[in-house]
């Protein structure tokens, strides 16, 4: 289960008890690592291995949930090593979403403090946060919680020393060099800078999930006055997040 020295950049395989394996590509928050993780995930989805029950892509590792009665770790290790050597696709395959966000005030209690700590005005911090096209690097912690890769380093801020026991659903937050769109209410030590009416997960909606790892996200600032109507539509099952065709980044999206 050691590294294979014959393959440059070969991942580390870390066993997880009796029912899991982590395929770790590196130690950094690096979009190139995440791309390799997503490529391996796609390759395994296209040609499943016996005993691999499901897979969870993360920033720098692909986690495999295994059926210990059916999984052969040596077979999996050989196959993963072969697949991990393939280059990731040059063009992102995911959808591009437009996600409306109300920044600051009661919607983002930590925006003012975070901006001040970074030497920015609130407006400048919002502009920096809404500028990139983010990639959904991974979804987890709680259902639908979406970790976005691509935060401007000027906004990176260490987590709060004391986490909040619960933060509102669909909070948009910054923790270290990461940013996220929350889902259901959950504890958090990240800085709350805004909220979106979008529910990444909504029980009973079809589809219950909106985003997938590898999707891209454009955040669109939304005036607070628009919140109530959009939130009501979202609660009733409207996604209120528009998609754009992958190649065209025009304002063709829906709700925003």
């Amino acid at each position: 289960m050691a590294d294979d020295p014959t393959i440059p950049g070969a991942p580390r395989l870390l066993p997880l008890g009796d029912a899991g394996l982590s395929v770790e590509f590196g130690d950094d928050l690096d979009p190139a690592l995440t791309a390799r993780v997503l490529a391996l995930d796609a390759a395994l989805a296209a040609d499943p291995l016996p005993g691999v029950v499901e897979t969870v892509p993360t920033y720098r590792a692909l986690m495999l949930h295994l059926d210990p009665l059916a999984a052969d770790l040596d077979v999996i290790a050989r196959r993963v090593a072969a697949l991990a050597g393939r280059p990731p696709p040059a063009v992102p395959s995911g959808r591009l979403w437009r996600v409306p966000v109300v920044y600051g005030g009661e919607f983002g209690a930590d925006l003012a403090g975070l901006a001040a700590a970074r030497g920015l005005t609130e407006a400048a911090a919002v502009a920096l946060h809404a500028a990139p096209v983010y990639t959904v690097a991974m979804i987890g912690f709680v259902p639908g919680f979406s970790y976005l890769a691509g935060l401007d380093p000027r906004l990176a801020t260490p987590r709060r020393p004391v986490p909040r026991p619960v933060v509102p659903a669909s909070s948009v937050a910054i923790g270290g060099g990461q940013t996220s769109i929350g889902s259901i209410p959950a504890p958090s030590g990240w800085h709350l800078i805004g909220r979106t009416p979008v529910r990444p997960f909504l029980a009973g909606r079809n589809p219950p999930f909106l985003f997938a790892p590898g999707d891209r996200i454009r955040l669109v600032p939304l005036p607070a006055a628009a919140w109530e109507a959009l939130d009501a539509r979202a609660a009733a099952g409207d996604p209120v997040a528009g998609t754009e065709t992958a190649a065209v980044a025009g304002p063709s999206g829906g709700a925003a």
Binding site: M63, H65, M138, G140
Partner: peptide
Amino acid sequence: IDQGYPLG
């Protein structure tokens, strides 16, 4: 860096 948590 936020990572996957295995069962157990």
